[in-house]
Simulated scan of single mutants.
Amino acid sequence: MNQTAYTTYIEESNFFVEVYLDPFNKRIRVDDYRGNIQFVLKRVEELVQDQHAEKLIVKGRSNDFMILMENGLQPEAVVDRFFLGSDAFFFSKFYSQDRKKNDHWITEDGMIHSIYQLDPTMEKNFPPKEYELKKADENCAAELSTLYRQVFQVYPTPLHDPEYVKKTMEDGTIYYVYFHQGKIVSAASAEINFFYKNAELTDCATISEHRKYGLMKMILQELEGELKKRGIFCSYSIARSLSFGMNAVLFQLGYSYRGRLMNNCYIYDKLENMNMWVKNLATC
């Protein structure tokens, strides 16, 4: 099977749906829809069978909450103000017993509890002067790919391919990076939905020996500043549930925990749960 993920648009007489087909992660995600939600779900479940997907994700609207529940989907997370100020509920349905099982859930619950005991006030970090923060351009694509290969054995999108990185930049994704001695050692991006005015802070990676200086916090703050300049105030991030450090960074940056996506994607070295964190940039 072709492992390349892609978006497809289906329009029929009584509905429209935007679907992200993701064979590598064995999932299908409904990113947008209009019209008759029952027909949308029927058509999407046909795609699930065709693609042999193990998980369906639907970014649902609040007025469809009960209909989604009635059709066997369960809410896993919420993003405040995702749809031009209205909340998005991430509903899921599983199609294999193994995909629904998880051994880390209780541990991850404990981690969230521990993170909420941290001091939420954040000291301003100033890394040593050898570190230089810059906005990345297409000339950085190859080195960004090298960084992601170095940090992640497995990643849910093909960031190991410089051409894919360039394509994301062309589509409006913003990357900020830290250079150390001329090499990129830390990076993150803001993937912007220009229509609904939201952005996902994602692709966060720092080489292990450079993690003690709080580089990621500085990069994410810089990305937030870029988003605010563009009038985008709904910012969210999906972090590996087993990564205490990344979840703690988001908490200390003022993000609020909004749920967990079970067995959501292949990242780092296996299929993992992912925590949802959300921030209203208009309040800061």
Rank of each mutant, 00 (worst) to 15 (best):
T202E: 02
V154S: 09
Y20F: 13
E130K: 13
F233S: 02
P75V: 07
G259R: 00
W105T: 15
R99C: 03
G254F: 01
G259C: 03
F126G: 14
R99D: 02
D103G: 12
N25T: 03
A282R: 04
Y95M: 04
V154C: 10
I106P: 07
L144F: 06
K129P: 13
C234L: 06
V154F: 09
D32E: 12
M66D: 14
F194I: 12
F65K: 08
T168I: 06
E54Q: 12
P23W: 00
S235N: 02
V58W: 01
M274C: 05
L220S: 04
Y213S: 07
M274E: 05
A77E: 08
E226H: 09
M111L: 11
D32T: 04
V185G: 01
L133H: 11
G182N: 09
S86G: 10
G259P: 01
C265H: 03
S92R: 02
T146D: 14
M122N: 14
L242T: 09
I192M: 09
F89L: 03
W105M: 14
V30N: 03
Y268F: 13
S13M: 14
L242G: 10
V154D: 12
T4E: 14
K183L: 09
E138V: 14
L147F: 10
N25H: 04
F82P: 01
D203E: 05
Q74F: 15
I207P: 05
R230V: 05
D80L: 10
D32P: 04
Y196R: 07
K228E: 13
R258L: 05
E70C: 13
E12R: 15
D171I: 08
P158R: 07
P23R: 01
M1G: 13
Y9C: 08
R27G: 00
K197L: 11
N275W: 05
Y176K: 04
F90C: 08
L144T: 00
R149L: 11
V185D: 00
I10Q: 10
N263K: 05
E200W: 01
G214N: 10
P75A: 08
P158N: 09
R240D: 08
D161P: 06
Q221N: 13
P127T: 06
G60Y: 02
I267A: 05
D64F: 10
R230E: 08
M262A: 09
F16A: 13
Y20C: 08
K55D: 03
A141K: 00
N263D: 09
E11S: 15
R27Q: 07
K93L: 04
L41F: 09
L281D: 00
Y257D: 01
T4R: 14
V17K: 03
T7P: 03
A5M: 11
V165L: 06
R211L: 13
N280R: 06
H180S: 15
L250M: 10
D203V: 01
F16K: 15
Q3N: 15
E191R: 10
H160M: 13
K183W: 05
R240V: 06
L84A: 09
C234I: 00
Y116T: 07
A77K: 05
I232D: 01
T173E: 08
V48P: 00
D22L: 01
D80E: 11
K212A: 15
E170P: 08
V17C: 06
V79K: 07
R258M: 11
F39P: 10
F179N: 07
Y268D: 14
G85Y: 02
S96H: 06
Q221K: 12
K135C: 08
C234K: 02
E76I: 06
